[in-house]
Amino acid sequence: MTQQIVAIIVDGLVYSSYLFMVAVGLTVIFGVMKILNVTHGSFYAFGAYLAATLVGIYYETDLPEFGGFLMLFLAAITVGLFLGVILEQGLLRFLYHRDEHIIVLATFAMFLVLEDVIIMIWGVDPYFAYQPMALLEASDIAGVPFDNYSLTLILLALVVGTALWFGLTKTKWGKLLLAVIYDRELSQAMGINVTVVFLVTFVIGAMLGALGGAYLAPTISVSPGIGVEVIVLAFAVVVIGGMGSIPGAMIGAVVVGLSRAAAVHLFPEVELFVIYAIMAAVLAFRPEGLFAPAKARKI
């Protein structure tokens, strides 16, 4: 019994961290740009693929073993910069004035395109980047074995969450961002360069998405289609937490992560849809998610 509870809690937290990592980039982009970015799934997939490739190359050399971790971050930064800039500059900025549904659809189209670009670059065979995970071995908590790599995911999620919170509330850049979130037109009138804010935000969001994929790469088989599932999971988490809210994404991730872990251990058959059921339930009672932004008077 205790073992089961420990397993649910630790698995739940690991899974929550995973969800937070895949959802946070989406929520950052939505919060600032009001764009629901389906290509987020591609950032994740590209991050995972590039990480797997770099890790593979790295361990061919005689460099110190722990340097493999650096490859994960390098992959995330590269993908974020590269894809983020191309997509924002090459596509999105032409669509900002269009209906929000059309923008979602455009990112969906881009997602389809990138799915096949992945196959063109990496082929259809799976990649494995198990080395960083093997390196950290396993430990047990109250008699339940866990691999340490998964536990570091919790740490990473906490670091990323704290860094974002700090960046948003304590730095000048963060304050600018909050101003844009609050009122885009007013910020523009006040002289904030919204164009640059958008580009930087999109790149950061892309890096976060790619980091999710890159850091997860050692734990999964990196194969075509990994972005598809991630995108709906991330949507669910973001919607539960309140779209555009970073603490919301964190709470959403924990709620979903723990519930899913409980479902996996107690009722395995409901695993896949428990997340969406929670999403539907939360929205039924709190239409704008758990952390709803305040609304202005309309009439």
Binding site: L36, H101, F235, A277, A280, L283, A284
Partner: peptide, 29 residues
């Protein structure tokens, strides 16, 4: 009865959530 209260992107997404419930049920059953 639930969805008619939603607009814009929330309507779009909530529809997706419900469709994924069906998907999840079918895949697991």
């Amino acid at each position: 009865f639930l969805l008619r209260r939603y607009r814009a992107i929330f309507f779009a997404l909530l529809n997706m959530a419900f469709s994924m419930i069906l998907y999840g049920v079918v895949v697991k059953t």
